[in-house]
Amino acid sequence: MSSDRAGGQPGPGGQPWRGGQPGLGEQPGPGGQGASREGAPALKIDRLSVRYGHITAVASVSLELPAGAIVAVLGANGAGKSSTLGAVAGSVKAHVSGDVRLFGERVGGRPSHRIVARGMVLVPEGRRVIAPLSVEENLLLGAYRQRSHKQVRAKLGEVHELFPVLRERRGSPAGLLSGGEQQMLAFGRALMADPRVILMDEPSMGLAPAMVDRVIDAVRAINALGKSVLLVEQNAVAALRVASYAYVLDRGRIASSGSAQTMRSDPVVAEVFLGLHESASRASAEQGPGRSEAARS
């Protein structure tokens, strides 16, 4: 049965949080003043809130993705990352408020298929390939909005070139691919829509370390095609290797942000990801002191 139809998880780790507390979320964006000189940023999220009933998963989050950049959104499990992406992509069943602009054009509140038509695609958490359809059919589905047969074929060629494994296994059901191959398929499927912006929800999740490297390489390759990428990750180390700028999401709010270089040494990042978080620290205390050492290595 297809569970989790709501798309993202209702980042429930945070306390119910109401009101628009200003502050941390309104730091200067990754492009600083530079982005506006170039024109509108690829994606601009302004005071986005997501509520599931009484539970607020995302509270007044603002962030910016400059055109052509890779920006990471880091956070622990349940920090509100998936809810943020789901709200931006129009796939969450929740109460969403705030402003989302794609190259200056308002897209907030539109259904997901309209947002794809405007040039932004979400690569969902857990790949979500359509398992009974073949690899090729999954890719063609990604180009659903493109009616020109010729252009679809051309795109298919590009995607095959980027991910040759998808050509080799074009006839087999997508459900039979390995986790890493499925992630490549999810990337390829997103590229078929010829988007300007790609949102990626935890692409490295559940993959072996060697595969994580290949996923990060793929993100870099996709970016090299001129796509702006908003990369949501729990694996901060991997994400900071490709991103130029990063935000840290904690309990539905932006806890910190800065260039990738500064974030690598940021105490908040260490706190959230290296097991020193107040709720996480209790858990790590129970598991013994070895955990933070392991996470650091």
Binding site: P12, G13, Q15
Partner: peptide
């Protein structure tokens, strides 16, 4: 006041 538990 009603306990506004955060859920897990």
């Amino acid at each position: 006041p009603p306990a506004s538990s955060s859920g897990a």
